[in-house]
């Protein structure tokens, strides 16, 4: 595998978009712009390499269906922001970290390891819905927790812009 060069223009455009989306969704990016640019470059590199924007600080498998949880923004961002003040890569931080009231450090990995992920894939229970029958199924965005009741999840999460495959049946 080779390193696929990403141009400066692409990085700048992606950073601008990331910033717009972060502001719109109430999120805050790391104030170290060089650090952010290098992470964005990593996400763009992964997008070319694997066909999906895998987290730059995690090893992607090359199979999108196995890595949906680590497509940026990952399923672990919000719990990590709550617990540690930053996402695993420190691309996103809390306001407290941004304003220097809380120190930014490298945090533990929340994603289960390879063996656990494999075991979980095999024992995935078929969801039972104790509250059924509901007039509509309820879908939950695994990235931000947005809930909606409709036949299918939306194509794009209206809150955090995650794509349809990031939704799970909630009720």
């Amino acid at each position: 595998m080779t390193t696929l060069d990403v141009s400066e223009t692409e990085i700048n455009e992606a950073c601008a978009k990331l910033k717009r989306d972060a502001v719109a969704g109430g999120y805050v990016l790391n104030s170290d712009t060089g650090f952010v640019e290098r992470l964005v470059s990593g996400i763009l590199t992964n997008e070319r390499r694997y066909g999906y924007p895998a987290c730059p600080c995690r090893l992607a498998s090359g199979k999108k269906e196995d890595d949906l949880d680590i497509c940026c923004p990952c399923d672990y961002r919000d719990p990590d922001l709550d617990e540690y003040g930053a996402c695993y890569c420190a691309l996103y931080v809390t306001r407290a970290v941004h304003e220097g009231q809380q120190a930014l450090t490298s945090i533990p990995e929340r994603r289960p390891g390879r063996a656990l992920r494999r075991a979980k894939l095999q024992t995935q229970p078929t969801a039972t819905h104790p509250l059924a029958p509901l007039p509509y199924p309820v879908w939950r965005c695994k990235v931000c927790g947005y809930l909606c009741a409709r036949d299918q999840p939306p194509g794009i999460c209206p809150v955090c812009k995650a794509t349809k495959e990031r939704f799970e049946r909630f009720m």
Partner: peptide, 9 residues
């Protein structure tokens, strides 16, 4: 390390 990871860098 990973080539794309900034904590690794």
């Amino acid at each position: 390390a990973l080539s794309t990871c900034q904590w690794c860098a």
